[in-house]
Amino acid sequence: MDRRTLLGTLAAGAVGAGLHAKGLSPDPTDVKPTGNPLAEYAPRAFDFGTGLTGLGKELLAEHLTLYKGYVTRTNALLKDVLAAEKEGKAGPMVQELRRRLGFEFSGMRLHELYFEALSQNAAKPSATHPLHQAIAGTWGSFDAWWAAFKATCTMTGIGWGALVKDPVTGRLMNAWLQDHENAAAVGTQALLVVDVWEHAYVKDYGATGRAKYVDAVKPLIDWRVVEKRF
């Protein structure tokens, strides 16, 4: 590993920890270190075959390509930011790189959370699972929660709809993540995220089809994955 790669990857753990505080990562107790904190991030392999019901093969292929771009840019920014910091640079250019790092890193992690919970053979929510009971206890019923979650996902703007948990109290909330990294409730843990940027649905549903897209995603949510995050 050359010096540039070494410097660039040294910050990975710190950045990941900081963004967990913004609700953009799963429970840190479930995250296993790679064994090499200096390793670059690598795109995770998500195989959606010929597509998923309601999400076409071409749409998913383009979406996965966009995700890989976030990974690539995250690695590049980590290198550039840390190299500048090692050299004592702190001017406007470095400050802008830091802002961009938050955007790219969060985009990388949110896509991983989203893709991980999509499945053609998705498990339905378990009525006896503590998460389902917490949803019913908070919103009155699963259907009432979903209506509120769908309304979150169809808010005006670009970003993500999310179901998050406050690990301090266990409280559940629906959250809107503007872009990737903004408007997150600090300290919350992401349980379910749905990408509602245009690239996630326009190819199959058109510019005005976000609500139909969210309906299509609903039966693809693998609640085994979501419940494990709880």
Rank of each mutant, 00 (worst) to 15 (best):
R4W: 13
T5Q: 12
L10Q: 10
L10G: 01
A12W: 09
V15T: 12
A21W: 05
K22N: 07
P26Y: 00
D27I: 03
T34S: 14
L38V: 04
A42D: 04
H63N: 08
T65C: 01
G69W: 12
V71L: 12
K89G: 00
P92R: 15
E96K: 15
L101W: 07
F103C: 02
F105D: 07
E112S: 06
L113V: 12
Y114C: 01
A117N: 03
Q120W: 07
A134V: 08
A136Y: 01
G140L: 08
W145C: 02
K150V: 13
K150G: 00
A151Y: 09
A151Q: 15
M155G: 02
G161Q: 09
L163P: 03
K165N: 06
K165C: 05
V168S: 15
A175Y: 00
W176P: 05
W176T: 07
H180V: 06
A185P: 03
A185L: 10
T188I: 00
L191P: 05
V193T: 13
A200I: 11
A200E: 10
A200D: 12
K203F: 06
D204T: 05
A207P: 02
A211K: 12
A211I: 02
K212V: 04
V214D: 12
P219G: 14
I221T: 11
W223Q: 09
V225F: 07
